[in-house]
Amino acid sequence: MRIRHAGREDTTELQMTPMIDIVFQLLVFFVMTFRIALPEGDFSIQMPSASASATLEPQTSPTLQVRLKARADGELTSITLDGTSMSDFTDLQQRIRRIVRDSAGPGESGSDREVEIDCDYHLKYDYVIQAITAISGYVDPETRTPHKLIERIRFAPLQK
């Protein structure tokens, strides 16, 4: 007959090494795959195909034409709105605000007018985004409230 000694218990020692091993491997994986994703946003543009645009309803108010001319190296040389020269994008925005009668009130919805941007082939894309920003709205620097101006923006047919 076996006699059990109630007082003597086997102490089980927890092996930490494999766990620490895995934990460090996980840590290395996440550190290596970590990449800071900067906040990005989109500007919607309307680019219906030629057949689709033919069936669209005619515009009640004429489309505004923004022309951006560029040098061969892509730098912007001139901005015109319906043939009127603009000094910069701020000027363009002020003119657009006058056209859509923007009162900068809260919750102001965008105008239903349309803008067609006509750019030179070599123009740097950065200027197009600046133009779209100037046309589509602005953020009040004091209240930080966004105000919409014209959201219906499209590109003119490509010209080389």
């Binding site: 919607s44 680019m47 082939y121 070599h122 490509l158 080389k160």
Partner: peptide, 24 residues
Amino acid sequence: KTGKVQEIIQACQTLEFLKFALRG
């Protein structure tokens, strides 16, 4: 080049993609 972006849009249009978003 903006022209290149427009060419990409045109290539998409020929395949009936009509909604575009320019990312900034």
